[in-house]
Nucleic acid binder design. Structure first.
Lengths: 200, 200
DNA sequence: CATGCCGTGATACAGATGTATCATGCGAAT
DNA sequence: ATTCGCATGATACATCTGTATCACGGCATG
C-alpha cells in the first residue's frame, strides 16, 4: 500500500506535530494518541517511527533547538553587513524574546521542555545541553570585541556581562509568557540595558 | 474516633506534603494518592479537606508564596540596620537565587507551578498573580531612593533597571535549576551587576 | 435516650496513557 | 512463483488518575 516511505520525512511530520501540541496545549497534553491525531497518522505509526515516547520527546527537542538556531542565524545576518558586535548581540538577544508568533512558539515550547527536564534530569543528559553555554560564549566574545573597539568600557567583565544579559533575556521571556508584560515592553527593557552597555 | 480535628492544621499538613513532592519529584508526580501517602493520611482525607485537586494546588501555591515572602522579609532585616536601598535590593535579589536548600526548594517548586500555569491560564486568574509586579515596584522604589542619595547615576530609568534586575535573577535561577551553573556562580553574576549599578 | 452531623475508611468508576500483540497487504529478492 | 521483510491497522492490557459512593463509629445537641 505504501511503497517504502521516507522515514526522516515521517519522523519530521510527527515530531512537529508534537511541537505544535507542546506550544498550544503544553507537553502534558502531548500524549502519543494526541500527537498521532495532530500528525494525521495512526497511533501505531507514532510507535513505529519512534519506539518510545522518550525517543519522540528527545527528537522533537533537537528539532526545536535547530529551529531556534536557524532563527538566530537569520536575525544575525539581518542585523546588517558588515556584522558588528553590537548588532550581533542585539540580534541574538532580541531574537530569543517572545515578540512575534514564531519566537512565542519557540519560547513557550522550550519552557514546556524546561519543566519536563527539571524533574527528570536523566533526560537532560541524553540531550546535548551545552546550547546555553555556547550562546553565552558567543555573547562574551562579541562583548570583548566591542571592548577592543572601544564601544564598551574595558573595565567590565565580559563573561559576567554576557551571562547577565542572557539570564535577563530568559527572565524577560518568562515574564512575557506569564502575562506580566507584553513582548514590546520586554524588548524595551532589553534595549534600555543594551543602550547603557554600549553607548547611548 | 477523632474528636473534632483542627481543619487548618490538617490542610497545612496536606498542602505541605504536596509542596514537598513538587520540589523533589515535580508537580506531575503530585497525584492525590501520592500527596495522601506523603502526608500520612488516606486518599479520602485529601478529598475531604480539599474538595478538588485544583483547590489543593491553589492552596499550596498560596502557602508557597507566603514562605517566599517570609524569607524575603528575613533577608531584608538581616541586611542590617538601618536598612539602605542597596542593602534591600541586594537582599531581595540574592534571596530569590537558589543558593541554599530552602531557596532551591522554593525556586524549584515555583518553576513547577510556572509550567503548570503556562498551559492552564485560568489557574493564574484564580490566584493573586500580582506578586512579581509588587516586587518590581519595590525594587524600583529602592533604586530611586539610591538615586536621590547619589549612589546611582540619576540618568538611569529606575523601572527599567528594576525590571532588568529581576528578570536577570529569574533567568539566573533557571540556569541554576537547569544545572548550567551553581548557586555561587549565579550569585557572583548578580553581585557583579549590582556593583556596576551602585558604586564598586 | 435518640438524632443527626462530622471525620474517616474502603472501594468503585470511568477515562486516559504508554506499550505490546496480532494480523495483513504490498513490494522486492531469490 | 514463493518467500520475506517493511509499513500499517486494529485492538488489548495493565496502570494510574481524579472523583464519587457507600458505610460506620463517635460526639454533641435535642
Amino acid at each position: 500500500m505504501t511503497a517504502r516511505v521516507e522515514h526522516e520525512e515521517r519522523r519530521r511530520q510527527i515530531a512537529e506535530a508534537l511541537l505544535r501540541i507542546a506550544d498550544t496545549q503544553g507537553l502534558q497534553s502531548a500524549s502519543m494518541r494526541a500527537v498521532a491525531a495532530e500528525a494525521g497518522v495512526s497511533l501505531r505509526l507514532v510507535q513505529y517511527y519512534f519506539t518510545s515516547k522518550e525517543g519522540l520527546l528527545l527528537d522533537a527537542l533537537e528539532r526545536l533547538g535547530a529551529q531556534l538556531q536557524a532563527r538566530m542565524a537569520e536575525w544575525i545576518t539581518a542585523a546588517g553587513t558588515p556584522p558588528t558586535p553590537r548588532g550581533n548581540v542585539t540580534a541574538v538577544l532580541s531574537c530569543i524574546l517572545p515578540t512575534d508568533a514564531e519566537s512565542r512558539r519557540i519560547t513557550r515550547t522550550y519552557a514546556a521542555y524546561y519543566a519536563l527536564v527539571l524533574n527528570d534530569p536523566e533526560l537532560l543528559a541524553k540531550h546535548g545541553a551545552a546550547q546555553p553555554d555556547l550562546l553565552e560564549g558567543f555573547l562574551a566574545k562579541q562583548i570583548r570585541a566591542a571592548q577592543d573597539a572601544g564601544e564598551i568600557d574595558a573595565g567590565r567583565d565580559a563573561e559576567m556581562t554576557a551571562a547577565g544579559l542572557l539570564a535577563m533575556v530568559n527572565g524577560l521571556g518568562s515574564s512575557v509568557l506569564g502575562g506580566q508584560r507584553d513582548g514590546a515592553a520586554a524588548l524595551a527593557v532589553l534595549r534600555h540595558h543594551l543602550a547603557e552597555l554600549f553607548g547611548g
